[in-house]
Design a binder for these strands. Structure first.
Length: 1093
RNA sequence: GCGCGCUUAGCUCAGUGGUAGAGCAUUACCUUCACACGGUAGGGGUCGCAGGUUCGAAACCUGCAGCGCGCACCA
C-alpha cells in the first residue's frame, strides 16, 4: 500500500473487490461443508423493480448478517432472486405496448403477449440484481431464482393441486374486491382503506303495499322539505319525472307539505311511530316514517352511493327498531331507474339485525350485487341480484337510460340530479368515510360478484403457535460474551465452530426454561411486538382469493368442461383419469353441480341463471402431465384462464428455491433458514403465509426434516421516510436514487449512513447527510490507516508481537476500549441492534482511537525510543486489524482494501483471512489470561483516563484565558504521585505545549498563576504578568459556585437517613466518593482564589 | 371502535431506578507534519401534562393530551 491517496476513493475500489469475490466464489454456499449452516432467503424484489432506499436498508442488514456469520465460521447461504410481480409487470408491458404499437394485450393474444413479457424480463429483469451487487450484497448468485422459473413454476402447480386435492382450494362465486382498472380480483390484503370525502345523501321513497297501493293505517311525522331541482334546465325536468307521474306528484307536494308542517307543529307534532314511551332520545332521533298531505307514507334512506339504487332489491330495517318494525313486509317504490313502470320498481322492506338503527336514518338500501354486507343480507333473505356496474366500473343498461354507459362516479352525480328532479332528494351532507382502494392501481375497488378460486389457509394453528409472543418467555441475555470468552491469543486467527449461534442458544434457553419445551414456540420476531399483529391476523383469518384475471403469472392448473343434463359422458373419462392417478400422477377431480350444491356456509348461489349447465368436471393436474392434458383437451376440456396471485408463488420461497420437492443437499443443510429480514408491511402477504406453507409442505408427513418452520428469526425493518417523516414515493420525488448516492459517496458510505440512522423497530428518517457522514467516516478510517503506514515501515509489513512490558497506559487504555467495543458490537449484532453496533464502532474508532490514542501515540513516534515505537506499531496493528474486521460486515469494500493494503492478510491461512477478510475470524474479547498477560487492569485504564481529563482541563485554561491557540505554551505539572517521563511526553503532545515542566510537591506557583487539577495532579499555566487578575477571579468564583452546588446536592442526599440506610452500599460509596472529588476540586479552586488575593 | 408505537437539546435519536447523553446543526478559534470528508473549545434540555410508588423517577404504575401506524367499520 504505497502512495496512498489522501482521501478514500471508493470508485476505484468497489468494483475491483466485488469482481474478486465473485471470481473466487466467496459467496457460494457449499451444502457439503462441515461448518455449521447459516442461511437467509432474500425477500424477492419485483423483477420490474428499481433499487430504492427500502431495499438498501433491508439488503444491507442481510449482508451484515451474512458477512458476520461467515466471520463466525458459518457456511453461509444468502439466496437471492426476484418475483414476477403479476399485476405490476403486466401493466408495465401493457403500457409499453400501447405506447409503442398502440395495441392492447388482447390485440396480440395471450401467447404472443406472454412472449413480450418474457422478452421484457430478459432485457430488464436483472437491473435490480445488478444494483444489489453495487451495494455489495454477498448473495450466492449461482442460486439466483425467479418465481416463474420452470422448476419454481412446477412447485407452484404441485402445491395448487395438492391443496385442491385436500379440499382446501375451492372455486366459488363470491363478493370479491374488484379492481376496475386492472380488471382483476384482489385479496383482502391488497385493499387499502382510505378516508374519502364525499356526501351522505338522504332521499325519500314511498312505502306501499305489495300491490303498489298506498300503505293504510300508519301515521308519521310531516314531510321535511326536499331539495329543489336547479332551475332553467328544461330538458332535465322533462326527462325522469315525466315518465313517473307519482314521483312528479310527490315533488309538487313537497312545498305544500312544508307549509303544512308548520301548521301541524302549532297544533302539536305528529310523533314518529313508537316514538312515545321511548324516552326523550327517541323523539330526537332522526328518521321514522313521514306522511304527506295525501296520507302517503315516506321513508328516508341515507346512502353514499346513489348510483347503485337501480341495483337495490330491498330496503332493510332492524326488526327491533320501533320506528319501522311494523313496515316489514310492506314495499317501497325504488326511484331508479326512473323510466321503469311503477310495478317493476317495488322492492320489499325486510327486517335484518345487521341494520344499525343509530346510524343514518335506520333504513338501509340493500344492493346485493355491489356491496359485501348487502350480499350477505341478500343471501339471508334470498333476494335477487341486479348487477348494474360493469367490470370496468361503468354502469350497464340495467342502471337506466341516463346512467347507462357512464363511469360510476359520473353516474353518482347524475343519479343525484335525477332524484333532485323527482323531488325526493332531501339533503346532501358532506361526509367522510373509508373507501377501499386497490393498492396497485390506487382507485376505489368495487365489490363484485364473481367466480374465483379461494384457499382455506393450511396449518393455521401451528403457525400461530410457533411464534413467540411477548411475555411468553424471558429474553435471556445473548450469548455473545459467553461463547466469545474462549478466545486463544491476542491476535485472533482462529475460530471455534460452535454448532449454534448465540441467537439460537438464546431462544432455546427460553424454551428449556418453560415447561413442555417441545410444544413451545421456536420462532422469534424482532421487535417482538409484531408477533401480536401476526397473531391477530391469524385469529381473524379469511379465505384467500388466489385467482387473478391476468395473463402474466402461474396459470391455474385446472381443466374443466361443462355438460348439460343427460349428457353424462364424464364417467368413462373419470375412469381413465383415475388410472393415471393410480400410477402416481398428481391429479384431482371434482364434479360440480351448481344447482344441487350444498352451500355449507359459503355464499354460493343456487339457481343462478348464468350457470346454465347441469354438471361441470374440474380436473386439477400438474401441467407436466402432458398425456393427461392432451386427453382432457381432446375431450373438449379447457384450462382455467386465470393465473394465481403472485404471493401464491412467493409463499413457497424458502424451500422452492432450494430444490423442493426433492430432498436436496441444500434443503438438508440450509432449511430452516436462520434469519428473515423484511418489512412489517408484508407480514400478512408474505411472512405469515410462508410460515403456513412451511408447516404444510415441509412438515414431517410431507418431508422428513427436523423442523418445518421456514426461519428461526424474523427481523422487521422500519419504513424509510424522508427527513420530514413522509413516506418515500415516486410522486413526491423524495426518494433518492441509491445508485446516485453510491456513485457520489460510495457503497460503504451509503450502508454506514443508512444503518447508523436505523434504530430497532422504528421508521427511518433518511437524510443524505447520513450518507455524507458515512463517507466522512470511511475517509477517517482510510486516513488512520494512512497514518499507520507513514509512521511505520514502508514495506507493508506488519510489526511483531506486542511486548507487554513496554505497554504504556495509553496502549492499555486503547486495548481495554477495543475489548469493550468487541463485546458491545457483538452483543448488538446478536440482538439485531444494528444502529447501536454502528454507533459503538463510531465512538470507539473516532472518539477513542483517533481522538486520543493516535494523538497520544505521536509522542512516541516523534520521540527517540525505538523499542517503544516498535511496540506502539504492534499495538496499532493489533487494534486496526481487529477494527477493520469489526467494520467488515458494515463496510465490506474499504475493509477488504485496507485488509490487504495494510498487510493484515499476509500471515493468515488462505481460508481464514489470507485470501479475503470475508473469512477472517470475527474479533474476540480478551479472556482473563490475556488481560493478565497485557496487564489490562483498572489502574492503567484510570491513569490514561485521568491524563486525558487533565488535557481537557489544560486546553480549557488556555481557551478561557483567551490565549493564542497557535502559540506553544509552557505548562507546569505537579503530579499527585509517580509519573513516567513517557506520560509527560504524551501530555506535552496533547496539550500542544512547548514544554511540560514537572515540579515537586513543595513547589508553589507565582501569585495568580492559573491552574487546574484532577486525580493525576495539578497543572499550571505560568504567565507572569499576562493575567488579568480580575477576570481570573471572576472565572474561579463562578467555578467555585458551580462546584458548591454539586456538593450541596450530594450532601443533601447523604444527610437524608432514608437514603443512607436504604440505598445499596455500592451506590452509597459512589456518592461518598463523588463528594470527596467535588470537595477536592473546591479546595483547589478556593486556594487558587486565595493566591490571587 | 380495538390494538400498537412515539413524545428527551434547533433536528434525528440513545438512555430499564442513582451526576441528563450522541450525531448533525450552531458559535468561536485553528490550514500544526493521517484526515478541513479535519482539529480544539463552547452554547443549548422543567426529559409531553397531571397524579402515584420510591430515600431517589427521563425510566416503574395510573390517568390525560398530541402525533403516527395497523386492524375493523355504518349504508
Amino acid at each position: 500500500m504505497n502512495e496512498i491517496p489522501k482521501a478514500y476513493e471508493p470508485q476505484s475500489v468497489e468494483d475491483k473487490w466485488y469482481d474478486f469475490w465473485l471470481k473466487q466464489g466467496c459467496f457460494t454456499a457449499d451444502p457439503k461443508s462441515a461448518k455449521p449452516a447459516y442461511s437467509i432467503v432474500i425477500p424477492p424484489p419485483n423483477v420490474t423493480g428499481m433499487l430504492h432506499m427500502g431495499h438498501v436498508l433491508n439488503n444491507t442488514i442481510q449482508d451484515i448478517l451474512s458477512r458476520k456469520a461467515r466471520m463466525d465460521g458459518k457456511e453461509v447461504l444468502w439466496l437471492p432472486g426476484t418475483d414476477h410481480a403479476g399485476i405490476a409487470t403486466q401493466v408495465m408491458v401493457e403500457k409499453q405496448l400501447k405506447k409503442e404499437e398502440k395495441k392492447s394485450r388482447h390485440d396480440l393474444g395471450r401467447e404472443e403477449f406472454l412472449k413480450r413479457v418474457w422478452a421484457w424480463k430478459e432485457k430488464h429483469g436483472d437491473i435490480i440484481i445488478n444494483q444489489l451487487k453495487k451495494l455489495g450484497c454477498s448473495c450466492d448468485w449461482t442460486r439466483e431464482r425467479f418465481t416463474m422459473d420452470p422448476e419454481y413454476s412446477r412447485c407452484v402447480q404441485k402445491v395448487f393441486v395438492e391443496l385442491y386435492k385436500k379440499g382446501l382450494i375451492y372455486r366459488g362465486k363470491r363478493m370479491v374486491n374488484w379492481c376496475p382498472v386492472s380488471q382483476t380480483a384482489l385479496s383482502d390484503e391488497e385493499v387499502e382503506m382510505k378516508p374519502q370525502k364525499g356526501f351522505m345523501y338522504h332521499f325519500r321513497v314511498e312505502a306501499v303495499e305489495a300491490d303498489g297501493s298506498p300503505v293504510k293505517g300508519v301515521s308519521g311525522r310531516p314531510l321535511t322539505p326536499a331539495l329543489s331541482p336547479k332551475g332553467g334546465e328544461g330538458e332535465k325536468s322533462s326527462a325522469p319525472s315525466a315518465t313517473d307521474s307519482s314521483a312528479a306528484n310527490a315533488a309538487s307536494n313537497v312545498s305544500k307539505s312544508a307549509g303544512a308542517s308548520k301548521a301541524s307543529t302549532a297544533s302539536g307534532p305528529l310523533s314518529p311511530i313508537g316514538g312515545e314511551g321511548q324516552g326523550e332520545g327517541a323523539d330526537e332521533r332522526k328518521g321514522g316514517p313521514e306522511i304527506d298531505s295525501q296520507g302517503r307514507i315516506w321513508l328516508t334512506i341515507a346512502t353514499t352511493r346513489p348510483e347503485t339504487i337501480p341495483g337495490d332489491t330491498a330496503v332493510a330495517v332492524n326488526p327491533k327498531d320501533p320506528r319501522y318494525a311494523h313496515l316489514i313486509g310492506k314495499h317501497i317504490v325504488r326511484p331508479l331507474p326512473a323510466e321503469l313502470p311503477r310495478e317493476q320498481k317495488l322492492i320489499p322492506i325486510i327486517g335484518d339485525e345487521h341494520v344499525d338503527f343509530e346510524f343514518g336514518t335506520g333504513v338501509l338500501k340493500v344492493t346485493p350485487a355491489h356491496d359485501k354486507a348487502d350480499f350477505d343480507i341478500g343471501t339471508r333473505h334470498k333476494l335477487p341480484l341486479i348487477e348494474v356496474i360493469n367490470a370496468d366500473g361503468t354502469m350497464n343498461t340495467l342502471a337506466g337510460g341516463p346512467l347507462a354507459g357512464l363511469d360510476r362516479f359520473k353516474a353518482r352525480k347524475v343519479a343525484v340530479e335525477i332524484l333532485t328532479e323527482q323531488g325526493v332528494m332531501i339533503e346532501a351532507k358532506p361526509y367522510e368515510n373509508n373507501v377501499g382502494f386497490s393498492q396497485r392501481a390506487d382507485v376505489p375497488i368495487e365489490p363484485r360478484l364473481s367466480e374465483q378460486w379461494f384457499l382455506k389457509y393450511p396449518a393455521v394453528e401451528q403457525s400461530k403457535a410457533c411464534v413467540e409472543q411477548e411475555g411468553m418467555g424471558s429474553a435471556p441475555a445473548p450469548g455473545a460474551g459467553a461463547s466469545a470468552l474462549a478466545g486463544d491469543s491476542g491476535r485472533v486467527t482462529s475460530f471455534d465452530a460452535h454448532g449454534k449461534s448465540a441467537r439460537l442458544t438464546a431462544t432455546d434457553g427460553a424454551s428449556v426454561a418453560a415447561p413442555e419445551a417441545g410444544a413451545l414456540p421456536k420462532m422469534r420476531f424482532h421487535p417482538q411486538r409484531w408477533a401480536k399483529v401476526y397473531d391477530h391476523w391469524l385469529t381473524n383469518i379469511q379465505d384467500w382469493c388466489i385467482s387473478r384475471q391476468l395473463w402474466w403469472g402461474h396459470r391455474i392448473p385446472v381443466w374443466s368442461k361443462k355438460a348439460n343434463e343427460g349428457d353424462s359422458g364424464f364417467t368413462s373419462l373419470q375412469n381413465q383419469l383415475n388410472a393415471f392417478k393410480q400410477n402416481g400422477s398428481l391429479i384431482h377431480m371434482n364434479l360440480y353441480t351448481p344447482h344441487a350444491r350444498n352451500e355449507g356456509g359459503t355464499n354460493v348461489l343456487k339457481h343462478d341463471p348464468q350457470e346454465n349447465y347441469f354438471v361441470r368436471l374440474d380436473v386439477a393436474v400438474d401441467p407436466t402431465e402432458e398425456k393427461i392434458i392432451s386427453l382432457l383437451e381432446q375431450n373438449g376440456f379447457t384450462q382455467d384462464p386465470d393465473v394465481l396471485d403472485t404471493w401464491f408463488s412467493s409463499w413457497l420461497w424458502p424451500f422452492a428455491t432450494m430444490g423442493w420437492p426433492e430432498q436436496t443437499e441444500t434443503l438438508k443443510k440450509f432449511y430452516p433458514t436462520t434469519d428473515l429480514v423484511t418489512g412489517p408491511d408484508i407480514i400478512f402477504f408474505w411472512v405469515a403465509r410462508m410460515i403456513m406453507a412451511g408447516y404444510e409442505f415441509m412438515g414431517e408427513k410431507q418431508f422428513a426434516l427436523p423442523d418445518a418452520m421456514p426461519f428461526q428469526n424474523v427481523y422487521f425493518t422500519g419504513i424509510i421516510r424522508d427527513k420530514q417523516g413522509r413516506k418515500m414515493s415516486k410522486t413526491l420525488g423524495n426518494s433518492p436514487d441509491p445508485l446516485v448516492l453510491i456513485a457520489q459517496y460510495g457503497a460503504d458510505a451509503l450502508r454506514f449512513g443508512t444503518m447508523r440512522s436505523a434504530p430497532l423497530g422504528q421508521d427511518v428518517l433518511f437524510d443524505e447527510k447520513d450518507v455524507e457522514l458515512g463517507r466522512n467516516f470511511c475517509n477517517k478510517l482510510w486516513n488512520a490507516c494512512r497514518f499507520r503506514q507513514m509512521v511505520g515501515s514502508a514495506d507493508g509489513q506488519t510489526e511483531g508481537e506486542i511486548n507487554p512490558a513496554l505497554l504504556t497506559s495509553d496502549d492499555k487504555w486503547i486495548l481495554v476500549r477495543l475489548d469493550l467495543a468487541i463485546r458491545e458490537v457483538s452483543e448488538a449484532l446478536n440482538t439485531y441492534n444494528f444502529a447501536t453496533a454502528v454507533q459503538t464502532l463510531y465512538r470507539f474508532f473516532w472518539s477513542e482511537y483517533c481522538d486520543w490514542y493516535v494523538e497520544a501515540s505521536k509522542a512516541a513516534f516523534f520521540g527517540s525510543d525505538d523499542a517503544l515505537m516498535a511496540n506502539k506499531l504492534a499495538v496499532i496493528d493489533f487494534v486496526l486489524g481487529n477494527t477493520i474486521r469489526l467494520f467488515h460486515p458494515f463496510l465490506p469494500f474499504i475493509t477488504e482494501e485496507l485488509w490487504h493494503g495494510m498487510g493484515y492478510s499476509k500471515e493468515l491461512p488462505e481460508n481464514l483471512g489470507g485470501k479475503t477478510i470475508m473469512f477472517a475470524a470475527w474479533p474476540k474479547p480478551f479472556n482473563a489470561e490475556e488481560k493478565e498477560y497485557f496487564g489490562l487492569d483498572d489502574v492503567a485504564d484510570k491513569i490514561a483516563a485521568a491524563k486525558y481529563e487533565l488535557v481537557g482541563l489544560g486546553r480549557n485554561l488556555r481557551r478561557e484565558l483567551k490565549l493564542d491557540p497557535a502559540k506553544k505554551l509552557k505548562f507546569i505539572l505537579k503530579p499527585a504521585g509517580e509519573l513516567a517521563t513517557a506520560e509527560v511526553e504524551v501530555l506535552k503532545i496533547l496539550l500542544n505545549a512547548e514544554a511540560v515542566g514537572v515540579v515537586a510537591q513543595n513547589w508553589t506557583p507565582a501569585k495568580g498563576t492559573p491552574s487546574a487539577a484532577n486525580a493525576l495532579g495539578e497543572i499550571f499555566l505560568p504567565l507572569e504578568g499576562l493575567i488579568d487578575i480580575g477576570a481570573e477571579k471572576v472565572r474561579l468564583t463562578k467555578e467555585a459556585e458551580k462546584i458548591q452546588s454539586e456538593i450541596s446536592k450530594v450532601e443533601q442526599k447523604l444527610a437524608n437517613p432514608n437514603f443512607t440506610t436504604k440505598v445499596p452500599p455500592a451506590v452509597l460509596a459512589e456518592h461518598e466518593q463523588r463528594l470527596v472529588e467535588w470537595r477536592t476540586k473546591l479546595a483547589h479552586t478556593q486556594s487558587s482564589l486565595e493566591v490571587l488575593g
